[in-house]
């Protein structure tokens, strides 16, 4: 399987990881190699198989509709790289 640098860049952009051209060139064959190896899965006939949905048979539990959390703004903001007036802040966004 061959992966080109444009693909690496497109995927890196989707994943929001900045990538320099030389890195993309280095990663392209590496990812191609891994993806090529992964592709052997295609050999397995899975036409009558359901994808696994729960590793161990278990039922999704639902919780009661009770307020048990919140009012912890100080803790929520404690590790923020930048916070002001009770808000997290980010570079201005134009919507």
């Amino acid at each position: 399987m061959s992966v080109d640098t444009a693909t690496v860049k497109r995927v890196a952009k989707l994943a929001r990881i900045a990538i320099r051209d030389e890195e993309a060139s280095r990663l392209a064959p590496e990812l191609g190699n891994i993806l090529g190896w992964i592709e052997q899965l295609g050999e397995v006939d899975t036409s009558s198989v359901q994808p696994m949905t729960a590793v161990i048979p278990n039922r999704l539990r639902l919780r009661d509709d009770v307020v048990t959390d919140g009012n912890i703004r100080a803790q929520v903001l404690a590790n923020a790289p930048q916070a002001e007036h009770g808000f997290f802040t980010v570079p201005k966004v134009i919507e």
């Binding site: 307020v67 048990t68 959390d69 919140g70 009012n71 703004r73 929520v76 009770g86």
Partner: peptide, 17 residues
């Protein structure tokens, strides 16, 4: 999460981890 949903609260006060 167990945080409240009420409208108009102080910013980030109805936020759980």
């Amino acid at each position: 999460s167990g945080a409240a949903t009420a409208f108009g609260a102080e910013p980030n006060s109805q936020v759980s981890l």
